[in-house]
Design a protein around this nucleic acid. Sequence first.
DNA 1: TTTCATACTGTGTATTTATACAGTATTAAT
DNA 2: ATTAATACTGTATAAATACACAGTATGAAA
Lengths: 200, 200
Amino acid sequence: MKNLTRRQSEILTFISDVISNEGMPPTRKEIALKFGFKSANSAEEHLKALDKKGYIDLHGGTSRGISINKSFLGIPIVGSVAAGSPLLAVENVEERIEFNGNIFSDSVDYFLRVKGDSMNEVGIVEGDLIAINKRKDVKPGDIVVARINDDVTVKTLFHLDKRKVILRPENKNYKDIEINPSIENFDIEGKCLGVLRNYN
Amino acid sequence: MKNLTRRQSEILTFISDVISNEGMPPTRKEIALKFGFKSANSAEEHLKALDKKGYIDLHGGTSRGISINKSFLGIPIVGSVAAGSPLLAVENVEERIEFNGNIFSDSVDYFLRVKGDSMNEVGIVEGDLIAINKRKDVKPGDIVVARINDDVTVKTLFHLDKRKVILRPENKNYKDIEINPSIENFDIEGKCLGVLRNYN
DNA sequence: TTTCATACTGTGTATTTATACAGTATTAAT
DNA sequence: ATTAATACTGTATAAATACACAGTATGAAA
């Protein structure tokens, strides 16, 4: 898919925002107003560019006839994470789900598909999607996504300071993970906001 | 809140459907077309009635300027169910959540807040919201919402025929529940489609 | 009985809106 | 060096749209 220019990206974001806030797509005039364009035709041309690149669909002859191509919408689901790759790298995104609403306490940056049973005792089981916010300011008690030497893991944060980090699996068959962040490569990738599970 | 007439209700439903399918509210003409009105003014008058009754907001001078009042949108969350009352009775609905998207395999009629630990071993814990579809055609293996003599419970359906129903808790501290539907008052309220959990 | 809400048709029109065409200037690609 | 895409202004207009006013008919409420 073709890349967007900065301006095009801003406009796509604006359209998406208007749809979620106002419940309908903006008119050319409203776009022009927002960006200070003196001619609605500027908006028209940006829309054509976005349409041509496949990011939106324009419905000719229809007022507010703009729909956003769904494959760019929605929250990515991160499946298996290739060692050392950024979590949100395209190769890790297995699909996207349309998802809006105020279900979780903060905005969801991505969903991570759970592997293994290390969190079974708090009701997080294999295959579950956990909602992640990319914040780094986590505190003990939070369930976190952490990266230890290129491996990504989900655990409860038990202790965190400059010398020592303790991650706790919620399953008595597993032992606590103790890390020295000054020696090992350690990073907090985000905080778990909640769980989504879909039975078939 | 004032009651809607059958026609008004149909129109409200149509508006809601158009918004979710087309991504924008319909015009008066589109409403008239759908219902076979020969004049767009019929749609106009229904919209005014819906606005007056508080179900929608009309944005004057704006094409497709219809927004649905959010307190009627969203999926109800059923909290504690008063014995013998219908699940979706107003007094059982603790709130509603805005929720759209194709997250679950079927449409969600309501969310039920889980009480107790009888389903712990399949990752359904106290406080979880489980997504329910009101179907009655459930099969063994499904997690179901059942009503036994005015009590509502969530269990795995293990066996179902005219003489005997077995509901299985997913926790070894609990025993199977065996019901004779010809003697006891038994009803399937719905099927569990998935789980939603929100950490704070 | 009279008023009011509902549920329409039919006509008309001011505004809103999409969208084409003609320009100008800047930057990226060939 | 030349072309094409980007990013705008400015003007114009056909079509889409909201919405008012004038009717007709029915049933429910006061």
